[in-house]
Amino acid sequence: MRKAIKYSLIAVIAIAALLLCAGYYMLGYALKPEELVSRSRNIESSLEYMRQTYPEVGHWIDSLQAAEALHDLYIENDEGTPLHALYVPAADSTNHTAVIVHGYTDNSIRMMMIGYLYNRQLGYNILLPDLYGHGLSGGTEVQMGWKDRLDVLRWTEEANHLFGGNTEMVVHGISMGAATTMCVSGEVQQGIYQQPFIKCFVEDCGYTSAWDEFKGELKNQFGLPAFPLLYVASTLCHIEYGWSFQEASPLEQVKKCTLPMLFIHGDADTFVPTWMVHPLYEAKPAPKELWIVPGAEHAVAYKENTEAYTRKVRDFVGTYIH
Rank of each mutant, 00 (worst) to 15 (best):
M1Q: 05
I5F: 06
K6H: 04
A11H: 08
V12N: 10
I13Q: 12
A14D: 11
A17P: 12
L18K: 09
G23T: 08
Y24W: 13
Y25P: 04
Y25I: 06
M26C: 13
G28C: 07
A30E: 09
K32E: 14
P33Q: 06
E35S: 13
E35H: 08
L36P: 10
S46W: 14
E48H: 13
Q52K: 13
I61T: 08
I61E: 14
S63P: 10
L64C: 13
Q65R: 15
A66T: 12
Y74W: 13
Y74A: 11
N77T: 00
A85D: 10
A85K: 06
Y87K: 11
P89M: 03
D92S: 10
T94F: 06
T97I: 07
T97G: 12
A98N: 14
H102G: 15
H102W: 14
G103R: 04
G103K: 11
T105N: 10
D106S: 15
S108R: 10
M113R: 15
I114Y: 13
I114P: 04
L117F: 09
L117G: 11
R120G: 05
G123L: 05
I126M: 15
I126S: 15
L127C: 07
L127I: 11
L128C: 15
L128I: 15
P129I: 02
L131W: 01
G135W: 04
L136W: 06
S137N: 06
E141M: 03
W146E: 03
D151K: 06
T156V: 13
N160R: 05
H161A: 12
G165W: 00
E168V: 00
V170I: 07
H172S: 14
M176N: 04
A178I: 02
T181L: 02
C183S: 09
C183V: 00
E187M: 09
Q189H: 13
Q189A: 09
G191D: 05
I192C: 04
I192G: 03
Q195C: 08
P196Y: 00
F201M: 06
V202N: 07
D204H: 12
C205K: 04
G206R: 02
T208L: 01
T208N: 05
A210H: 01
W211G: 02
F214L: 13
E217Y: 00
E217S: 04
P225Y: 00
P225I: 00
L230G: 05
L230A: 03
L230P: 03
V232H: 06
V232Q: 09
A233N: 05
S234G: 04
S234K: 02
L236W: 01
C237E: 05
I239Y: 07
E240A: 11
Y241S: 08
W243Y: 15
E247G: 05
S249N: 09
L251Q: 12
V254L: 06
K256I: 01
K256V: 02
T258D: 14
L259E: 04
F263I: 01
F263N: 07
I264S: 08
H265C: 04
G266A: 04
V272F: 01
T274L: 00
P279V: 02
L280V: 03
Y281K: 04
Y281G: 08
Y281P: 11
E282I: 03
P287C: 05
E289R: 11
P294Q: 12
A296N: 13
E297W: 03
H298A: 09
V300A: 12
Y302P: 14
Y302H: 15
E307G: 02
A308W: 00
Y309G: 12
T310C: 11
T310L: 08
Y320A: 00
